[in-house]
């Protein structure tokens, strides 16, 4: 029995991929994750917005009152990007020397400007794949849903032009017709779609009437949203589907694989339980497979996908009616 599967078409020894996060920002912690059985790791993202903020907060205020050095700082954001990129390239090179699992670079961008050309540089630095986290918050009320979707496709097309390594796109669930959009994305040339990313959430401190940071980690029930959509979109997509958000236990992993995911991304559980939790999750999957008599992941992957039903929408409706008919007040 083994846990072999693929991530973006690259063979991996476990379906558990460590998602882009602080744990994947240094070579030391990545080595630890690899030693504990991660199938692959997605490096902490380079954030386009972070660079813009750095430029605006730390660089532009340096401009003297008479704009004496405006010319010096006018394009300094490109310098910052270059510095960030250089560090990132070094991280990729260091990590690649130290681990034998795939290392996926990650870009978190909001526009399709010159930024996308950096994808090529990450490939040259040795990344095995690239994850694109397009950070378009859906509350930009000036943009129609069509425009937002179009911009995703445009960014992907431009990046695919530049690189030959596989590309994953990580999306939120906030699309008007999510299924149709996932299908369209899957035809755009991406090797995988990660369902779903978690936006930074906010909360209110009502005593001080301030906006504060909301929950950072996913909850253990949050897996239900990706589970549903992977289940719906399996076999309707032309690429791998990767589950993300709320995958906290080996049971969650198994559910995602049964729904049709090729692999899962885990982050919050590792923050809470530590890197060694990966071993426990891998063991949990193996125990379940053994109890069911499965030798490989492929032998059960997608078994519970809704797409195996002729009319999945009816399947969903039936489940809904059954649920409420069973719950009497």
């Amino acid at each position: 029995m083994n846990l072999n599967t693929t991530y973006l078409g690259i063979p991996v020894k476990s379906p558990i991929i460590v998602g882009s996060c602080g744990l994947t920002s240094t070579a030391e912690s990545i080595i630890e994750l690899a030693n504990n059985g991660a199938g692959a790791i997605v490096l902490k993202s380079i954030f386009e917005e972070e660079i813009i903020l750095d430029f605006e907060k730390n660089v532009l205020p340096k401009v003297g009152p008479m704009d004496n050095d405006l010319e010096f700082f006018d394009y300094y954001d490109y310098q910052i990007k270059d510095e960030v990129l250089h560090k990132y390239q070094s991280l990729i090179a260091d990590v690649k020397k130290s681990v034998d699992i795939p290392v996926i670079a990650s870009i978190n961008c909001i526009s399709n400007g010159e930024w996308v050309s950096y994808a090529k540089k990450l490939e040259e630095a040795g990344a095995d794949g690239l994850e694109l986290n397009i950070f378009k918050l859906p509350f930009d009320i000036k943009k129609s849903s069509e425009e937002i979707e179009h911009s995703y496709i445009a960014i992907i097309e431009r990046i695919i032009e530049k690189i030959s390594i596989p590309l994953a796109v990580k999306i939120s669930p906030y699309f008007t017709n999510l299924g149709e959009f996932v299908k369209r994305l899957s035809l755009s040339g991406v090797a995988g779609i990660v369902l779903f990313n978690r936006y930074y959430s906010i909360d209110f401190d009502i005593n001080n009437e301030e906006v504060i940071s909301g929950g950072v980690f996913s909850g253990d029930k949050d897996y239900e949203m990706p589970l549903r959509w992977i289940s719906i979109m399996n076999q309707k997509s032309n690429c791998e589907l990767i589950a993300s958000t709320g995958v906290h236990t080996s049971d969650n992993v198994i559910k995602m694989l049964l729904a049709g995911a090729g692999s899962v991304q885990v982050v919050s559980a590792l923050y809470k339980e530590g890197s060694s939790y990966l071993k426990k999750m891998n063991s949990g999957i193996k125990e379940w497979m053994s109890s069911k008599g499965y030798e490989t992941i492929d032998s059960f992957k997608g078994n519970m996908s809704q797409t195996t039903a002729d009319k999945p929408e009816i399947y969903e409706r039936v489940q809904f009616m059954r649920y409420f008919s069973d719950h009497k007040h």
């Binding site: 010319e71 010096f72 394009y75 310098q79």
Partner: peptide, 29 residues
């Protein structure tokens, strides 16, 4: 932005080509 100047934001899908035979990059030193 913090310098008081309005920040340039890319207009998606607005790319176009210009014929050039010399380009001088003057974005600071």
């Amino acid at each position: 932005d913090s310098s008081g100047r309005r920040r340039p934001v890319p207009v998606e899908g607005s790319e176009y080509l210009i014929d050039v035979d010399t380009v001088v990059v003057s974005v600071g030193v």
